[in-house]
Design a protein around this nucleic acid. Sequence first.
DNA 1: GCCAACGTTGGC
DNA 2: GCCAACGTTGGC
Length: 159
Amino acid sequence: MPSYWLCKTEPSVYSIADLRRDGVTGWECIRNYQARNFMRDSMSPGDRVLIYHSNAEPTGVAGVAEVVGEARADPTQFDPKSEYHDPKSTRTAPRWMMRDLKFVECFTQVVELEELRAAAALQSMVALQKGNRLSVTPVTAAEFAAVLQLAKSSKGRKR
DNA sequence: GCCAACGTTGGC
DNA sequence: GCCAACGTTGGC
């Protein structure tokens, strides 16, 4: 049974279009222990991931990716020039782990935050809870299906 | 740019 | 272990 996730990204930094271009990318620069634990311990190859554009116009779910391979060390933690360099991390015991994500689908139109909040099926979705700032959150199978439905339905489109 | 709602750090 | 100060996230 695959699990489902939502990963946030700022599209001005890395968007669903960038993922489509790259095919597969290391989901780098996560520096929150809870998000790291989800990626390191709870994700499995084949899990589906909603790609969420934050700090964007529009903000919302822009497409779908898939987890490929096992967790591996985030290379940016070892790069002294990176703003994500972590001098306390070592290669033998890396602190920050990430997954590789593979492009699956780019929605024809972003399912906007307002639509997500209005959907009855998404009232309990972790990423939408008040005050939640985690960039990696679990999604139920039903919530995942509901977002895909919004992406495909006419209700999910403008005009 | 503002600011609410977090998470992290460090003194004690 | 407490908690004030500070930093970050992310919608608006």
